[in-house]
Design a protein around this nucleic acid. Structure first.
Lengths: 141, 141
DNA sequence: TTGATAATGAAAATCACTATCAATAAGAAA
DNA sequence: TTTCTTATTGATAGTGATTTTCATTATCAA
Protein backbone atom coordinates (compact mmCIF):
# COMPACT_ATOMS: atom_id res chain seq x y z
CA UNK A 1 0.00 0.00 0.00
CA UNK A 2 1.48 3.33 -1.05
CA UNK A 3 1.62 6.29 1.31
CA UNK A 4 -1.02 7.99 -0.79
CA UNK A 5 -3.34 5.01 -0.40
CA UNK A 6 -2.75 5.06 3.35
CA UNK A 7 -3.60 8.75 3.55
CA UNK A 8 -6.77 8.38 1.49
CA UNK A 9 -7.82 5.41 3.57
CA UNK A 10 -7.32 7.51 6.67
CA UNK A 11 -9.67 10.14 5.26
CA UNK A 12 -12.28 7.54 4.46
CA UNK A 13 -12.09 6.01 7.93
CA UNK A 14 -13.09 9.36 9.38
CA UNK A 15 -16.12 9.58 7.12
CA UNK A 16 -14.43 12.14 4.89
CA UNK A 17 -14.75 11.93 1.15
CA UNK A 18 -12.09 11.38 -1.47
CA UNK A 19 -12.28 14.17 -4.02
CA UNK A 20 -10.06 14.90 -6.98
CA UNK A 21 -8.95 18.09 -5.24
CA UNK A 22 -7.86 16.25 -2.14
CA UNK A 23 -6.01 13.69 -4.21
CA UNK A 24 -4.16 16.42 -6.07
CA UNK A 25 -3.18 18.16 -2.84
CA UNK A 26 -1.98 14.90 -1.30
CA UNK A 27 0.07 14.21 -4.43
CA UNK A 28 1.84 17.54 -4.13
CA UNK A 29 2.53 17.11 -0.42
CA UNK A 30 3.86 13.57 -0.80
CA UNK A 31 6.14 14.56 -3.66
CA UNK A 32 7.69 17.51 -1.88
CA UNK A 33 10.89 17.17 0.08
CA UNK A 34 10.35 20.48 1.82
CA UNK A 35 7.63 21.96 3.96
CA UNK A 36 5.05 23.91 1.96
CA UNK A 37 2.55 26.59 2.90
CA UNK A 38 -0.97 26.68 1.53
CA UNK A 39 -0.15 29.19 -1.16
CA UNK A 40 2.76 27.10 -2.43
CA UNK A 41 0.56 24.01 -2.56
CA UNK A 42 -2.09 26.03 -4.35
CA UNK A 43 0.39 27.16 -7.01
CA UNK A 44 1.67 23.63 -7.56
CA UNK A 45 -1.81 22.11 -7.73
CA UNK A 46 -3.14 24.88 -9.91
CA UNK A 47 -1.26 23.61 -12.97
CA UNK A 48 -3.39 20.50 -13.25
CA UNK A 49 -6.45 21.86 -11.47
CA UNK A 50 -6.91 25.43 -12.67
CA UNK A 51 -10.38 25.60 -11.17
CA UNK A 52 -9.29 24.76 -7.64
CA UNK A 53 -9.77 27.52 -5.11
CA UNK A 54 -7.21 28.47 -2.47
CA UNK A 55 -9.82 27.92 0.21
CA UNK A 56 -9.94 24.23 -0.59
CA UNK A 57 -6.20 24.04 -0.05
CA UNK A 58 -6.45 25.73 3.34
CA UNK A 59 -9.24 23.38 4.37
CA UNK A 60 -7.49 20.24 3.16
CA UNK A 61 -4.16 21.09 4.81
CA UNK A 62 -5.99 21.72 8.05
CA UNK A 63 -7.81 18.45 7.73
CA UNK A 64 -4.61 16.49 7.06
CA UNK A 65 -2.96 18.10 10.05
CA UNK A 66 -5.83 17.06 12.30
CA UNK A 67 -5.53 13.52 10.98
CA UNK A 68 -1.90 13.50 12.11
CA UNK A 69 -0.56 13.20 8.57
CA UNK A 70 0.95 16.68 8.35
CA UNK A 71 2.82 18.74 10.91
CA UNK A 72 3.55 22.44 11.11
CA UNK A 73 7.22 23.32 10.78
CA UNK A 74 8.66 26.42 12.40
CA UNK A 75 11.30 28.36 10.50
CA UNK A 76 12.61 31.90 10.41
CA UNK A 77 10.87 32.21 7.08
CA UNK A 78 7.53 31.49 8.69
CA UNK A 79 5.54 29.07 10.79
CA UNK A 80 2.78 28.24 8.36
CA UNK A 81 4.47 25.50 6.38
CA UNK A 82 3.42 21.88 6.54
CA UNK A 83 5.50 18.74 6.22
CA UNK A 84 4.40 15.11 6.08
CA UNK A 85 4.71 13.71 9.56
CA UNK A 86 6.92 10.71 10.12
CA UNK A 87 5.86 8.10 12.65
CA UNK A 88 7.94 7.49 15.74
CA UNK A 89 10.37 9.72 17.55
CA UNK A 90 12.63 11.87 15.44
CA UNK A 91 13.86 15.38 14.84
CA UNK A 92 14.26 17.60 11.83
CA UNK A 93 17.25 18.85 9.90
CA UNK A 94 16.27 21.65 7.54
CA UNK A 95 18.19 23.39 4.79
CA UNK A 96 18.24 27.12 5.47
CA UNK A 97 18.47 27.83 1.76
CA UNK A 98 16.05 25.53 -0.09
CA UNK A 99 13.98 24.28 2.83
CA UNK A 100 14.69 20.60 2.24
CA UNK A 101 13.67 18.72 5.37
CA UNK A 102 15.18 15.45 6.61
CA UNK A 103 14.02 13.50 9.62
CA UNK A 104 16.79 11.95 11.68
CA UNK A 105 16.86 9.66 14.68
CA UNK A 106 19.55 8.48 17.04
CA UNK A 107 19.78 11.42 19.38
CA UNK A 108 18.23 10.80 22.73
CA UNK A 109 18.69 13.49 25.31
CA UNK A 110 15.75 12.45 27.45
CA UNK A 111 17.79 12.10 30.64
CA UNK A 112 19.50 15.46 30.30
CA UNK A 113 16.25 17.20 29.49
CA UNK A 114 14.64 15.59 32.51
CA UNK A 115 17.47 16.79 34.70
CA UNK A 116 17.17 20.38 33.51
CA UNK A 117 13.44 20.29 34.11
CA UNK A 118 13.92 18.98 37.64
CA UNK A 119 16.51 21.64 38.41
CA UNK A 120 13.86 24.22 37.58
CA UNK A 121 11.03 22.31 39.30
CA UNK A 122 9.27 21.84 36.00
CA UNK A 123 7.33 18.72 35.05
CA UNK A 124 8.74 17.93 31.61
CA UNK A 125 6.16 17.22 28.94
CA UNK A 126 7.78 17.72 25.58
CA UNK A 127 10.79 19.01 23.77
CA UNK A 128 11.48 20.53 20.43
CA UNK A 129 14.73 20.20 18.59
CA UNK A 130 15.55 21.31 15.07
CA UNK A 131 18.86 21.62 13.26
CA UNK A 132 19.41 23.92 10.32
CA UNK A 133 22.19 24.18 7.79
CA UNK A 134 22.95 23.81 4.12
CA UNK A 135 21.94 20.65 2.29
CA UNK A 136 24.46 18.97 -0.07
CA UNK A 137 23.02 20.65 -3.14
CA UNK A 138 22.91 24.14 -1.66
CA UNK A 139 26.51 23.89 -0.42
CA UNK A 140 27.67 23.66 -4.02
CA UNK A 141 25.86 26.76 -5.20
CA UNK B 1 22.03 50.19 36.87
CA UNK B 2 18.67 48.47 36.49
CA UNK B 3 17.77 46.50 33.39
CA UNK B 4 15.32 49.23 32.47
CA UNK B 5 18.07 51.84 32.64
CA UNK B 6 20.27 49.66 30.49
CA UNK B 7 17.54 49.30 27.89
CA UNK B 8 16.77 53.01 27.79
CA UNK B 9 20.47 53.79 27.54
CA UNK B 10 20.66 51.41 24.59
CA UNK B 11 17.89 53.33 22.86
CA UNK B 12 19.63 56.63 23.48
CA UNK B 13 22.94 55.33 22.14
CA UNK B 14 21.23 54.66 18.83
CA UNK B 15 19.89 58.20 18.65
CA UNK B 16 16.39 57.03 19.56
CA UNK B 17 14.29 59.04 21.98
CA UNK B 18 12.95 58.02 25.35
CA UNK B 19 9.21 58.56 25.35
CA UNK B 20 6.68 57.81 28.05
CA UNK B 21 5.14 55.24 25.73
CA UNK B 22 8.42 53.41 25.26
CA UNK B 23 9.06 53.45 28.98
CA UNK B 24 5.64 51.98 29.67
CA UNK B 25 6.17 49.22 27.12
CA UNK B 26 9.61 48.41 28.52
CA UNK B 27 8.12 48.24 32.02
CA UNK B 28 5.53 45.71 30.91
CA UNK B 29 8.09 43.58 29.09
CA UNK B 30 10.59 43.58 31.95
CA UNK B 31 7.93 42.69 34.49
CA UNK B 32 6.56 39.77 32.50
CA UNK B 33 7.92 36.29 33.11
CA UNK B 34 6.35 35.02 29.93
CA UNK B 35 6.62 35.93 26.27
CA UNK B 36 4.03 38.46 25.15
CA UNK B 37 2.66 39.42 21.75
CA UNK B 38 2.02 43.03 20.75
CA UNK B 39 -1.69 42.83 21.55
CA UNK B 40 -1.01 41.51 25.04
CA UNK B 41 1.50 44.30 25.67
CA UNK B 42 -1.01 46.80 24.36
CA UNK B 43 -3.70 45.56 26.75
CA UNK B 44 -1.33 45.70 29.73
CA UNK B 45 -0.01 49.15 28.86
CA UNK B 46 -3.45 50.49 28.08
CA UNK B 47 -4.44 50.59 31.75
CA UNK B 48 -2.02 53.41 32.54
CA UNK B 49 -1.79 54.84 29.04
CA UNK B 50 -5.32 54.77 27.61
CA UNK B 51 -4.31 57.02 24.74
CA UNK B 52 -1.55 54.74 23.45
CA UNK B 53 -2.16 53.26 20.04
CA UNK B 54 -1.46 49.65 19.13
CA UNK B 55 0.78 50.85 16.30
CA UNK B 56 3.22 52.32 18.79
CA UNK B 57 3.44 48.93 20.48
CA UNK B 58 4.19 47.19 17.19
CA UNK B 59 6.87 49.74 16.38
CA UNK B 60 8.48 49.65 19.80
CA UNK B 61 8.57 45.84 19.98
CA UNK B 62 10.17 45.78 16.56
CA UNK B 63 12.71 48.36 17.62
CA UNK B 64 13.62 46.47 20.81
CA UNK B 65 14.04 43.28 18.81
CA UNK B 66 16.45 44.99 16.42
CA UNK B 67 18.43 46.31 19.37
CA UNK B 68 18.86 42.70 20.50
CA UNK B 69 16.87 43.23 23.69
CA UNK B 70 13.89 41.08 22.71
CA UNK B 71 13.66 37.78 20.88
CA UNK B 72 10.78 36.04 19.16
CA UNK B 73 9.65 32.83 20.84
CA UNK B 74 7.87 30.04 18.97
CA UNK B 75 5.10 28.19 20.74
CA UNK B 76 2.01 26.21 19.82
CA UNK B 77 0.05 29.21 21.04
CA UNK B 78 1.72 31.40 18.45
CA UNK B 79 5.00 32.53 16.96
CA UNK B 80 4.61 36.26 17.41
CA UNK B 81 5.48 36.52 21.08
CA UNK B 82 8.51 38.36 22.39
CA UNK B 83 10.69 37.63 25.40
CA UNK B 84 13.55 39.63 26.88
CA UNK B 85 16.72 38.17 25.45
CA UNK B 86 19.37 36.81 27.76
CA UNK B 87 23.00 37.23 26.80
CA UNK B 88 25.15 34.21 26.03
CA UNK B 89 24.21 30.73 24.85
CA UNK B 90 21.19 29.18 26.45
CA UNK B 91 17.89 27.50 25.75
CA UNK B 92 14.34 27.92 26.92
CA UNK B 93 12.08 25.96 29.22
CA UNK B 94 8.49 27.08 28.84
CA UNK B 95 5.39 26.27 30.86
CA UNK B 96 2.76 24.80 28.56
CA UNK B 97 0.02 26.16 30.80
CA UNK B 98 0.91 29.71 31.82
CA UNK B 99 3.72 30.42 29.37
CA UNK B 100 6.35 31.17 32.01
CA UNK B 101 9.74 31.09 30.32
CA UNK B 102 13.04 30.19 31.98
CA UNK B 103 16.44 30.30 30.35
CA UNK B 104 18.79 27.47 31.22
CA UNK B 105 22.38 26.65 30.34
CA UNK B 106 24.62 23.67 30.78
CA UNK B 107 23.50 21.53 27.86
CA UNK B 108 25.97 21.42 25.04
CA UNK B 109 25.17 19.02 22.25
CA UNK B 110 27.33 20.70 19.64
CA UNK B 111 29.32 17.57 18.82
CA UNK B 112 26.30 15.35 18.44
CA UNK B 113 24.53 17.89 16.27
CA UNK B 114 27.60 18.19 14.11
CA UNK B 115 27.71 14.41 13.70
CA UNK B 116 24.08 14.20 12.63
CA UNK B 117 24.63 16.97 10.11
CA UNK B 118 27.66 15.20 8.66
CA UNK B 119 25.77 11.92 8.37
CA UNK B 120 23.26 13.73 6.19
CA UNK B 121 25.91 15.73 4.30
CA UNK B 122 24.55 18.96 5.72
CA UNK B 123 26.69 21.93 6.72
CA UNK B 124 25.39 22.74 10.20
CA UNK B 125 24.59 26.38 10.82
CA UNK B 126 22.26 26.59 13.76
CA UNK B 127 20.09 24.64 16.14
CA UNK B 128 16.96 25.27 18.04
CA UNK B 129 16.05 23.58 21.27
CA UNK B 130 13.14 24.24 23.57
CA UNK B 131 11.70 22.25 26.47
CA UNK B 132 8.11 22.49 27.60
CA UNK B 133 6.33 21.30 30.71
CA UNK B 134 4.45 22.50 33.76
CA UNK B 135 6.01 25.14 36.00
CA UNK B 136 5.90 24.64 39.77
CA UNK B 137 2.82 26.80 40.18
CA UNK B 138 0.84 25.17 37.39
CA UNK B 139 1.61 21.68 38.70
CA UNK B 140 -0.35 22.45 41.84
CA UNK B 141 -3.50 23.60 40.08
C1' DT C 1 -30.16 5.31 -9.59
C1' DT C 2 -31.26 8.01 -5.82
C1' DG C 3 -30.77 11.01 -1.96
C1' DA C 4 -28.49 12.80 2.10
C1' DT C 5 -24.91 15.56 3.00
C1' DA C 6 -19.86 16.49 2.65
C1' DA C 7 -17.11 19.35 -0.14
C1' DT C 8 -16.36 23.03 -3.26
C1' DG C 9 -15.55 27.86 -5.15
C1' DA C 10 -16.71 32.67 -5.05
C1' DA C 11 -17.29 36.53 -2.43
C1' DA C 12 -17.33 38.91 1.71
C1' DA C 13 -15.50 39.29 6.27
C1' DT C 14 -11.92 39.14 9.62
C1' DC C 15 -7.40 39.30 11.46
C1' DA C 16 -2.72 40.80 12.26
C1' DC C 17 0.22 43.87 10.73
C1' DT C 18 2.21 47.93 7.76
C1' DA C 19 2.28 52.45 5.46
C1' DT C 20 0.98 57.24 5.29
C1' DC C 21 0.76 61.66 7.24
C1' DA C 22 -0.33 65.67 9.95
C1' DA C 23 0.24 66.83 14.80
C1' DT C 24 3.07 66.34 18.86
C1' DA C 25 6.94 66.11 21.89
C1' DA C 26 12.02 64.93 22.97
C1' DG C 27 16.15 66.88 23.69
C1' DA C 28 20.26 69.37 21.70
C1' DA C 29 21.69 73.97 20.97
C1' DA C 30 21.25 78.75 21.79
C1' DT D 1 14.76 78.58 29.79
C1' DT D 2 13.40 78.99 25.15
C1' DT D 3 13.89 77.68 20.52
C1' DC D 4 14.11 74.58 16.83
C1' DT D 5 15.01 70.29 14.44
C1' DT D 6 13.24 66.06 13.73
C1' DA D 7 11.99 61.52 15.85
C1' DT D 8 7.76 59.77 17.48
C1' DT D 9 2.99 59.41 17.89
C1' DG D 10 -2.00 58.22 16.91
C1' DA D 11 -5.55 58.04 13.51
C1' DT D 12 -6.69 56.31 9.26
C1' DA D 13 -6.34 53.70 5.37
C1' DG D 14 -4.26 49.82 3.19
C1' DT D 15 -2.35 45.15 2.73
C1' DG D 16 -2.00 40.13 2.58
C1' DA D 17 -3.17 35.89 4.73
C1' DT D 18 -6.72 33.22 6.51
C1' DT D 19 -11.84 32.35 7.73
C1' DT D 20 -16.64 32.45 7.19
C1' DT D 21 -20.79 32.25 4.62
C1' DC D 22 -23.63 30.22 1.34
C1' DA D 23 -25.53 28.48 -2.87
C1' DT D 24 -24.03 24.86 -5.97
C1' DT D 25 -21.82 20.49 -6.94
C1' DA D 26 -20.19 15.87 -6.28
C1' DT D 27 -19.36 11.71 -3.36
C1' DC D 28 -20.81 7.45 -2.00
C1' DA D 29 -24.00 4.51 0.92
C1' DA D 30 -28.38 2.58 0.38
Amino acid sequence: MTTKEIWLKRLKEKGLRITSQREAIVDVLLNSEKALDSMEVFDLVHKDHPSMGIVTVYRTMDCLEHLGLLQKVHQDSGCNKFLRLKEGHHHLLICSNCGKAVYFEGLNFGDQFEKVAQQNDFLLQDHWLQLSGLCPRCQKI
